[in-house]
Design a protein around this nucleic acid. Structure first.
Length: 507
RNA sequence: GGUCGCAUGGCCGAGUGGCUAGGCAGAGGUCUGCAAAACCUCGUACGGCGGUUCGAAUCCGUCUGCGACCUCCA
């Protein structure tokens, strides 16, 4: 590792040099989905962002343990208080199936989607229901430390007491104790078991109709949301680990409470660096599952609708890699606005990048190749791309460097630039770096080349057709040559007449 | 109301105290039987008003607008 990675730490709100606890190793925890419904696209953005971070850390030489949980119990619908229902349980009740059927179904769907977006599997993907014992232990530790209280079989985290003894509550989300206190007046009206509105449940007594329940010292019940992340990150990464990630909307209350739980249980801060991926917007507004009461429509689009084009929000379907490319084009800490126009632009950009890659692979080094300004320029563009990634994983900027390289590559192909000005070593490096960025770091795949079967029949067939068309063109038999071109077009195969013959691509 | 963040050329989207981000669209050109594709060239933008500075789109203040969180979401 020659260059230090700097990253923006949400906890300090500053960009900091990244120093792992154990040299050469990184422990990273990212909050995964609650599997009570289909993954939605905003979810995918977050995980693609962290996939790129994961890939880049590994590419930089770190051994990374990447833990991303599946929340399959405890995430309540509505307020944490009595009367709220667990999301999974609710779904199971509505569908009249077992909660674990709900979990199985949506976990599968989630994994499928992650595969479609070409994200790498995390090293460990622990489930909340598989760690009930660890969670009960943590509740006990918090109680032992006097930072929680039991009410009617439920256990609540005492935020006021914690805030008084520890200055870290509210630090992440910028909330302060005075605000917590001032909220009291309004909210005390609500019938509540909690001593204070900002307290939150870490163990919840299950009412008899509740489907998911476990025995505990306090009641038959289930763990609170937030707790699973505290317990599982501790179990697999230790009491303090390097990086904790998640969507920006989890900052409060989820991550704030997670920190409180870990501090409350062991007195130590869970993660040194907190990274938050920003929201995916659609037409300027947060993409959200919830349905607008006025319009009756949700401001969202599912990944499948995006692929097929079956949505009023877009004019056509877009492939998963175009979406992934689109996500690479913005910084993970910025909001990204999904519009039809932006997607159309991304689709073209993606193709240009892939064509550039293909062109590059076909370039052959010149034996006379010598160092020159061009050679220097190529190398500094490559260096810059890595510098950009080291600077808080600035993928859009690194991508811009690749596009500048594409211009050079095309210049070399077209002959405005000469391979005599590029050393064989630089060309080799360029091929390697280009490949690595596109496929290993950005995690894109080349969809345009994946056509036909792998038996080569398609290629042979197309070559035959192209040859026939070529000879009819030579004979100025435009009727035949145009018929071939138009018919193929209808079959979604586009012929491209270039200087060095005709190539084809499937749309 | 509280907390935080953002306002960049037609669109998306980076960035920095003084040096062209990039992609798409648009204009011109090369190529082509025509077309498509591809390639080349081009645009000098940074919400309003003050201030700091030799110099600010970049720093500070302020106003306006937008968004997120505070209630379920990545």
């Amino acid at each position: 590792m020659t260059n230090t990675i700097h990253l923006h730490n949400s906890l300090t709100r500053k960009k900091e040099a990244f120093t792992p606890i154990n040299e050469g190793r990184v422990g990273m925890y990212v909050c995964g989905p609650t599997v009570y419904s289909d993954v939605h696209l905003g979810n995918c953005r977050t995980f693609v962002n962290f996939d790129i971070i994961y890939r880049y850390l590994m590419y930089s030489g770190y051994k990374v343990r990447y833990v991303r949980n599946i929340t399959d119990v405890g995430h309540l619908e509505g307020d944490t208080d009595i009367g709220a229902e667990d999301k999974i349980s609710k779904k199971a009740r509505l569908e009249q199936i077992e909660p674990m059927e709900v979990v199985q179904h949506y976990t599968g769907g989630f994994h499928d989607m992650m595969r479609i977006f070409n994200t790498l599997s995390p090293s460990i993907e622990p489930r909340a229901t598989g760690h009930i014992i660890e969670q009960i232990e943590m509740v006990q530790q918090i109680l032992d430390n006097g930072l929680a209280y039991v009410k009617n079989g439920s256990v609540y985290f005492d935020t006021l007491k914690f805030a008084k003894t520890n200055d870290s509550y509210g630090k992440l989300s910028g909330r302060i104790i005075d605000d917590l206190l001032s909220e009291t007046r309004d909210d005390l009206k609500n019938q509540s078991e909690k001593n204070h509105p900002s307290d939150f449940a870490i163990w919840i007594k299950a009412d008899p109709s509740h489907l998911m329940r476990w025995d505990s010292p306090w009641s038959v019940g289930f763990p609170g949301w937030h707790l699973e992340c505290s317990a599982m990150s501790t179990k697999y990464l230790g009491k303090t680990f390097d990086i904790h990630g998640g969507g920006n909307d989890l900052k409060f209350p989820h991550h704030e409470n997670e920190i409180a739980q870990n501090e409350g249980a062991c007195g130590c801060s869970p993660a040194n660096y907190w990274l938050h991926a920003n929201m995916l917007l659609m037409n300027g507004k947060k993409m959200s599952k919830s349905i607008d009461p006025e319009t009756g429509v949700s401001n969202s689009i599912t990944p499948n609708e995006l692929f097929t084009g079956d949505s009023p929000h877009i004019s056509k379907g877009f492939s998963p890699m175009v979406i992934r490319f689109f996500m690479c084009q913005s910084h993970y800490r910025s909001t990204l606005d999904l519009t039809d126009e932006a997607l159309l632009a991304a689709e073209k950009g993606y193709r240009r990048l892939m064509e550039g890659f293909k062109t590059l692979q076909a370039l052959e080094a010149s034996a006379k190749g010598a160092a020159s300004d061009l050679d220097k320029e190529l190398n500094s563009l490559m260096d810059a791309a890595f510098t950009d990634m080291n600077d808080d994983f600035n993928s859009p900027k690194a991508l811009a460097r690749l596009f500048e390289l594409v211009t050079k590559i095309n210049g070399l192909k077209e002959g405005h630039l000469s391979l005599n000005d590029v050393t064989p070593d630089t060309l080799t490096r360029l091929k390697q770096v280009f490949h690595d960025f596109i496929f290993e770091i950005f995690g894109l795949t080349n969809e345009t080349s994946a056509v036909g079967g792998d038996d080569g029949a398609m290629d042979g067939l197309m070559q035959l057709i192209i040859d026939i068309r070529q000879s009819s063109r030579k004979n100025k038999d435009w009727a035949t040559s145009d018929k071939i071109r138009d018919t193929l077009k209808e079959l979604k195969i586009v012929l491209k007449d270039g200087k060095d013959g005709t190539s084809w691509v499937k749309e």
